[in-house]
């Protein structure tokens, strides 16, 4: 499988990365090189093989239902490029 520039542009949009036409052109080339490389996986017979879910053979640990965190909005917003009254600010979102 290979991708064309339109696909790369669509994928970049999905990933929310602005790309110029030239970048899309260059990336199309690079992505096709990678996709060509991974194509060899098609040789592998994976019939009846379970996909790996985790390399760790253990049961997922759980926590007790206790409030142990939060309560410090200033800490949460300290790194925000734009904030007001402990809210994060973004350009107006229209639904």
């Amino acid at each position: 499988m290979s991708v064309d520039t339109a696909t790369v542009t669509r994928v970049a949009r999905l990933a929310r990365i602005k790309v110029t036409a030239e970048e899309a052109e260059r990336m199309t080339h690079e992505l096709n090189s990678i996709l060509g490389f991974v194509e060899q996986l098609d040789e592998v017979d994976v019939t009846g093989v379970e996909p790996m879910t985790s390399v760790v053979n253990s049961v997922m640990r759980r926590r007790a239902d206790e409030v142990t965190d939060g309560g410090d909005a200033a800490r949460v917003t300290a790194n925000a490029p734009m904030s007001d009254d402990n809210f994060f600010l973004v350009p107006k979102v229209v639904e």
Partner: peptide, 27 residues
């Protein structure tokens, strides 16, 4: 480059061919 590849292989219609197959190979 890697974000785009990753986004592409997870996107609708390609998941099974790429990601799922790769995880089976990993097994």
């Amino acid at each position: 480059r890697r974000i785009l590849i990753g986004t592409y292989v997870l996107s609708a219609g390609y998941y099974d061919a790429y990601y799922l197959r790769a995880q089976k190979v990993r097994t």
